[in-house]
């Protein structure tokens, strides 16, 4: 058994097991983190009790305790990243849908889009002196 910064991990042969409180991390957050570890270990999720998710990480090869502890720690960090991504997605869901609808289904007057694209072109091209072929410029 290991306890690093409050993460209690049960270490066994080539495996680390710990539990996650589902009132803190939603199941899709836990699954999202688990997906990113597919290349490094075998992942098994279980529900030992209500609102608790057990994560079992089994190394694909030999692994000492330090390696397993680090793996569990990285998983815990990834839970935070996944939770933040979920929060960012939820906070912006409606406005993203609106922007995508505007991008692909709107019927704006062509002149405004042309103006926008011209602005984007100018933004990218001005510092490049694009009419000057590279071999004739200073580089």
């Amino acid at each position: 058994m290991s306890d690093v910064n409050g993460l209690t991990t049960d270490l066994g042969e080539r495996r680390a097991r710990f539990e996650v409180d589902e009132s803190i991390y939603a199941l899709d957050t836990i699954q999202g983190a688990a997906y990113l570890f597919l290349d490094r270990c075998y992942v098994f999720l279980d529900r030992p009790a209500d609102r608790r998710v057990a994560v079992l990480l089994k190394a694909k090869g030999d692994a000492d305790e330090a390696t397993l502890e680090a793996l569990a720690g990285e998983f815990a960090n990834e839970l935070l990243n996944q939770a933040l991504r979920k929060a960012v997605g939820a906070s912006n869901a409606k406005i993203r849908e609106f922007i995508l609808a505007k991008a692909f289904f709107s019927v704006d007057a062509p002149s405004s889009i042309d103006k926008l694209l011209a602005e984007l072109d100018a933004e990218e091209m001005e510092p490049l002196e694009i009419p000057v072929p590279w071999e004739k410029s200073d580089g």
Binding site: L36, F37, D39, R40, E74, N77, E78, L80, A83, A87
Partner: peptide
């Protein structure tokens, strides 16, 4: 591995957003 690249040493507080 993409998982270690994604796991950042940042201070990440999802509740602070």
């Amino acid at each position: 591995t993409i998982s270690t690249r994604l796991t950042t040493p940042l201070r990440v507080d999802p509740t602070a957003l």
